[in-house]
Simulated scan of single mutants.
Amino acid sequence: MNKVFFIIVGIILLVITGCQQPRKIRKYYEDGQLKETYYLDRKYRKQGANIEYYPSGNVSFLANYIDGKIKDTLYYYLDSSKKVIEIVKYFKSDELVFYKDYHKSGHIRQQGHFFGKRKRIGIWKNYDKDGHHTFTKEYKIIDGKEYTNQMWVTLPGGDTLTESVSIHYHFDKKRVQLTDSIYCFFQIENSAFSKEEAKTAAVSVTLPKDYTQENFTADFSNRPKSPFGTTKTKDTTVINISSLDKQRIIPIEAAGTPKEALHQTVAFYWKPKRMGRDTIRGYVVEMISFIDKNNPTNKEQDSIRTELSKDIYFDVPVEVIK
């Protein structure tokens, strides 16, 4: 009796265990060639390896699922028996994905991070088919949209070309006492304009007037904007710090700035107003102004003044202690 009982219990356990195991699904092309394999649990969620194939039979896609969600890394392959990788996606979180793709030569073509629905964020590096680094771009999410913040174009030897648009900046400390201040330095590294235009460009840094009340949001969507979509230079909610050539008193740390670079350099002291971890957010504005004689506004006026600007955004984490 006991023997029969244990046999019955064993059969029941095998049935239950079998029901809990994911079942393998196979899909085929019209010619009968295997197209895809994956596993579904009893809740119809993908579990384990998901493999897709080209009509040639070569692997085209490989991913690993846990409870219906992609786990870690996703691979795309070229149509080759050698399983040559074309694209790699590494899921760091639900919002952040590290992306890398390759030339047919096998060298990396580009790599960087996507945020949300394929919005580039942070540093992206690009390479030619021979593996030489060609240019780097820094992306920000501004007003909820992808924004090219800075760009460095390089030669194989590492030299930067004039097509680059970037700034050099540093804060002398990231951890500061509430009674102390931080020295902030900004300088146009590669102008958005031609050499002649850059000589007359006005450079400034914009910060929230009272960040204890309203700091800039992570995507800067609460910054002042003009009806034409560009940032304002005058607004009661922000402060604009002009370049050194327009300041009466220059911070002692910036005293050695060459005379020809004063108009492209902004330096000041930032004093914290609250304890804890914080973020200093702002943007550097490089603006040129000129008379456009080919764009009259009315019969009485044969020319108007046109302004062009490039905004480069920054956010620096700081910690304020007693």
Rank of each mutant, 00 (worst) to 15 (best):
E214P: 05
S56T: 14
L155K: 15
D79P: 10
A63E: 15
R109G: 05
K71N: 15
I70H: 04
K140I: 00
T206I: 11
T200R: 15
I70W: 11
E163L: 12
M151D: 09
K92W: 08
T237S: 13
K145L: 10
K273C: 00
S309E: 15
I291M: 07
V84I: 10
I87Q: 07
T306K: 12
Q110P: 06
V320L: 04
S221V: 00
L40F: 09
K43T: 05
N58P: 03
H133S: 02
T206M: 12
Q247L: 12
K3I: 09
S309N: 15
K209D: 07
F220P: 05
T237R: 13
L178P: 09
I108R: 05
E95D: 12
Q150G: 02
D292P: 00
F185N: 14
R109M: 11
C19S: 10
P208H: 04
Q301T: 14
V316E: 12
S56L: 09
P258Y: 12
I70S: 06
R118Q: 13
K145Q: 14
Y76R: 10
A198R: 11
P208L: 09
G158C: 03
E36P: 04
F193D: 12
D128W: 14
K69W: 05
N222C: 01
K3F: 06
V266T: 08
V266L: 10
S93I: 01
W152N: 08
V318Y: 03
N126C: 10
S226I: 00
M287L: 04
R248Y: 10
T200V: 13
T160G: 00
V316W: 03
L14W: 05
P22E: 08
H170V: 01
L178V: 15
P55C: 13
S289G: 06
D31E: 11
V285G: 00
Q247I: 04
C184I: 12
H113D: 14
I188C: 00
R109Y: 13
G229W: 06
A49C: 06
K83D: 15
K35A: 13
S204T: 15
S194H: 09
Y147I: 01
S242L: 10
I142N: 02
K129Q: 14
K24I: 06
S191V: 00
I51Q: 11
Y102T: 04
S181L: 13
T17K: 14
D94E: 15
P208R: 03
W152V: 13
K83L: 13
T279V: 10
I141Q: 07
S93W: 04
D67F: 07
E86W: 10
Q21P: 00
N190M: 02
A192M: 07
Q47R: 14
G229Y: 07
G122W: 08
Y139K: 02
L13S: 13
T160K: 14
N126W: 05
Q47W: 08
K27D: 14
T236Q: 01
N58C: 09
R42K: 14
Y76M: 05
Q301N: 14
Y313A: 01
P251A: 05
